[in-house]
Design a protein around this nucleic acid. Structure first.
Length: 477
RNA sequence: GGCCAGGUGGCAGAGUGGUUAUGCAGAGGACUGCAAAUCCUUGUAUGCCGGUUCGAUUCCGACCCUGGCCUCCA
């Protein structure tokens, strides 16, 4: 049962075999920090976080490099609008994004690279491309990649540039030899942030930084290169052209792209301005809920953030934590350990089968509904032959790969209840008074009053449950 | 115009050459004073037309439709 990965380069699911046994070098394109991070950034970061975690679960020594693009046209423009220095502006949003990514439950990548910290490497890279005839300097001090020097151009996106020119908006940039050549180095306009280079003051083009950072931190060849699907063309295509022209070797072995985010069926994009900011989602939902929502989707497919997705996800998370909490204080010392082991193996196999199939977290979650159904069913019986605590521990251990269900269940439930109480303005005392009031009514068979008490609480998000051991209350999410 | 993805039950959405997930909603049941929660059961689902096959939702071809990328974007 080996890991299979869908490789965008070959367009098939391939057996995953890293270049060097036991080691995985992965690079995922991060964020251009021209403002607040949005839910699309969150999706991409969670997907590659989980990929990293699963590779580590399989025992690989993973080096995961992510980058911030901290200088580009938009950053310069937005910084100017905010009356800030572009570097200061970028740093502000990088710091904020770091905090949000952490709050989302993402592990820190091995290396967080930054374009402006690699200017020398970029200049070096560009110079080598010029020296080898893959790039040229224009009369205006810009450096362009010479597309005609890389015959394999288009192998990732399957775009044939000579056939694709109809309908493409062409921006005439003076100094370009060919419309399709792309900038490696941009000369600075007066007053713009700039670095000294052999071609005059300027700054890196968008694509070159990733090639340079890859080379610097991971070497000439890497195992996995990832990002959002919107980067396939031209960004990743251009990275391949630059890197492979420089080294003469295949750049990345596996290309992995996650789908894009839609909001209630509509594509989310900067041009449409319908983005959901990560900080706004984090203000309303906990990381477990957000990750659950994002991972209950095949990573390569677009994800539709409908109005019901996050509330529904929260219910599922709450229910799972409730299942875990219900095991607290239960004694399973009489359990049949062999049967329990068999169940644990079955769960582990289901998990690995799903994850080995191109990181199918959707299937893991579908299976997990079954696992929790099993626990609840056994728990509802008078006696069970399974050690449910050990089974639950295994589920939690496996879910470490998704970084979901890692909180203390009792505390999670307490916290959720407190949040609801805070919103409803009720206290635990209020609820217990109502329960007692209802108990009296029930004893008098005054069902109308009993039901009214219950309805009133339900109105405020509190649901009463009559059990053989008395009445309990819970939040109605 | 070029390239790509996809069309599955009421909705969302997977996998699979033959017995088809999962969730939500619905129905029935256990339970309850009634509920709730939980659990169990359940439902004429695979765009259209051909082909390959003993057998296709799954493979191949044509067609129709939807969406994406080709411009900054994760």
């Amino acid at each position: 049962m080996a890991l299979k990965v869908y490789n965008v380069l070959s367009r098939i699911k391939e057996d995953f075999t890293p270049l060097n046994p036991g080691v995985v070098n992965m690079y995922a394109c991060g964020i251009t920090v021209s403002g607040d991070a949005h839910i699309g950034h969150a999706y991409q970061s969670v997907v590659f976080d989980v990929i990293t975690r699963y590779l580590r679960y399989l025992g690989y020594d993973v080096k995961y490099v992510r980058n911030y693009t901290d200088v580009d046209d938009k950053i310069i423009a937005n910084a100017a609008r905010a009356g800030m220095d572009p570097i200061e502006f970028a740093e502000k949003y990088m710091a904020q994004t770091d905090i949000e990514m952490d709050a989302l439950g993402n592990a820190q990548p091995t290396i967080m690279a930054r374009a402006t910290k690699c200017i020398d490497d970029i200049i070096n890279f560009v110079q080598k491309l010029i020296d080898s005839g893959h790039a040229y300097v224009s009369e205006f001090g810009d450096v362009y990649f010479k597309l005609s020097s890389f015959p394999e151009y288009g192998k990732l996106s399957h775009i044939q540039v000579d056939k694709n020119d109809t309908g493409v908006r062409k921006e005439t940039e003076p100094g370009k030899q060919n419309d399709l050549d792309f900038a490696l180095w941009k000369s600075a306009k007066p007053g713009e942030i700039a670095w000294k280079s052999p071609w005059g003051m300027g700054r890196p083009g968008w694509h070159i930084e990733c090639s340079a950072m890859n080379l610097k931190y991971l070497g000439e060849q890497i195992d996995i290169h990832g990002g959002g699907r919107d980067l396939v063309f031209p960004h990743h295509e251009n990275e391949i052209a630059q890197s492979e022209s420089l080294t003469g070797k295949q750049f990345a072995k596996y290309w992995i792209h996650c789908g894009l985010v839609k909001i209630n069926g509509q594509k989310m994009s900067k041009s449409l301005g319908n983005g959901i900011l990560l900080k706004d989602v984090l203000a309303k939902y906990d990381a477990d809920t957000i990750r659950f929502a994002l991972l209950r989707n095949t990573y390569s497919a677009d994800i539709d953030i409908t109005d019901s997705l996050l509330p529904e996800s929260r219910k599922h998370i709450y229910k799972m934590y409730s299942g875990l909490a219900a095991l607290n204080g239960r004694d399973f010392s009489d359990a049949d350990q062999n049967e329990t082991n068999a169940k644990i193996d079955e769960i582990k196999n289901e998990f690995e089968r799903a994850m080995n199939d191109n990181f199918n977290t959707l299937e893991v979650i579908a299976a997990a509904f079954g696992w929790f159904g099993f626990i609840n069913t056994e728990l509802a019986k008078k006696s069970t032959e399974y050690d449910l605590k050990r089974i639950a521990d295994k589920i939690v251990e496996l879910f470490r790969v998704l970084n979901i269900l890692q909180q203390n269940p009792i505390e999670y439930i307490e916290k959720t209840k407190n949040d609801v109480l805070e919103k409803s303005g009720l206290t635990v005392d209020d609820i217990e008074k109502s329960i007692n009031e209802r108990l009296v009514a029930k004893q008098n068979k005054d069902w109308a009053t009993a039901d009214a008490v219950r309805a009133k609480l339900l109105d405020k998000g509190i649901v009463l449950n009559d059990t053989p051991n008395g009445t309990t209350w819970d939040v109605n999410l």
